[in-house]
Nucleic acid binder design. Structure first.
Lengths: 246, 246
DNA sequence: TAGATTGTTAATCGATTAACAATC
DNA sequence: TAGATTGTTAATCGATTAACAATC
């Protein structure tokens, strides 16, 4: 069974990005694409693109690059064509409400089929039916929902998280500032309640941004002052560039 | 000048997380903390925590761990104590409006001081003044704003992005589905218009979640069927666990 | 053919982990 | 002292990059 490869998260992310680019190229009438093009669009090098494709066994043509149609199909085969991408939204406050009307989702075939809240009557109307959170489990089971968005206040995060796991949710997009983890060292393969979690920590991202900028600014001013800066033991006063991230 | 270390993005992220945990511990009356505790809270190993601290030259006590107060100060010193964390928000649609009333920001000392939109009159009231986008540059210069949140529709993304750079914004939290990059191979050290970008791609995150779950489900079912699964060349039918991410 | 592109291998790099000496 | 924890070094791992043969 040669179809089984190690697919880690960053690889999957790249594959999905390739898919998106392919969709756009296709809509523009393109037929073939080079590793080069995809690399530029996704922000990686061409070698990574080719390696990714060779890893999942999708072949290109030595001269003509990759055929967009077959490449798209192959990617879909590896990632699994998801007919139904229904999600529930738990927590219908401001962020939650904004997500309910987020038109970007529809483009990707993702649909928020229901919202849940402690006080459904407080939620802003948006076309998505809002239910009391007590009905979460039954709804999830009845509609075979696998993925949920968590957007409750910080204080409720862990309790609601547990409730979602109990309800049978397998993947959570977490907008809470609480860094959720699957319960104690959960071993994905054996744990029946295992859950894949994607943390979107907006406040943290912003804070990081401030610090990165700040650090960079300090590095620049040191450079302008002509100060000698130490890089891991060796002295350098020219190449400030190596001092930070990327 | 021993204070100059390579601070990459993931290190900065961890340092900020440590800070947050320390703040909470402090408020609970704790005085000292072990690498162990921080590791658990942040989701890394204790070795990473110790290595991080030794990297930025903050010492602990062989027996008593780290003093929370001095550790907090040292971290602040490395990251740079940011008095003012004012940001502007560009694009006051649904996501933007939700962010304007996002109470989490205040806790971190982050404040959205103004919103900008093509049609300020359409924006929902939220206490934050909304200006026409034409006034962005003058506002940013006048108030020395360094960081901006980008939450415009996909079609406007790149144009508004350029406008923000022109206005002097140095860091952008991008909620657009367009993966922004600083213009062509920008070399951070030399480029006066360099900008640090943090992409928050909600749709992509959700899609990834679906695929990760799907891949995992397939792996599980293969396991249950007793099928022999290939791992990078060697055969194994027991340890499905190594087949995926983390 | 000449030129361009894939596909793969080996080299490099960085980050994580393991191990353990130092020491409180 | 014995036990626990830090701090650092070396080993491991994985991912990225470089290089180049294969070939269209």
């Amino acid at each position: 069974m040669p179809g089984s490869i190690e697919l880690n998260k960053s690889l999957v992310t790249r594959l999905v990005k390739y898919q998106r680019v392919l969709r756009k190229l296709k809509s523009l009438g393109f037929v073939q694409v080079f590793s080069n093009n995809l690399a530029d669009a996704v922000g990686v090098t061409a070698a990574v693109v080719r390696k990714d494709f060779s890893l999942i066994n999708v072949p290109g043509n030595k001269r003509g690059g990759y055929n967009i149609d077959t490449l798209t199909q192959d990617l879909a085969g590896v990632l699994g064509t998801q007919g139904d991408k229904s999600v529930v939204l738990v927590g219908c406050g401001r962020i939650g409400s904004a997500l309910m009307s987020y038109t970007e989702f529809a483009k990707e075939g993702i649909r928020i089929v229901a919202g849940f809240d402690l006080h459904p009557e407080h939620a802003r109307a948006s076309g998505v039916p809002i239910h009391p959170i007590t009905e979460l489990a039954s709804f999830v089971r009845e509609h075979n929902i696998e993925v949920g968005i968590l957007a409750v206040p910080e204080g409720a995060a862990t309790a609601v998280f547990e409730a979602m796991i109990d309800a049978g949710i397998r993947g959570i997009l977490n907008f809470t500032s609480v860094e959720l983890k699957c319960h104690g060292n959960c071993d994905r393969s054996k744990c029946p309640r295992h859950c894949t979690i994607s943390n979107v920590n907006i406040g943290l991202e912003l804070e990081n941004l401030f610090y990165l900028i700040n650090i960079e600014t300090r590095a620049r001013s040191r450079l302008q002052l002509g100060e000698v800066v130490m890089f891991g033991g060796s002295l350098a006063d020219t190449d400030i560039d190596t001092e930070e991230d990327e």
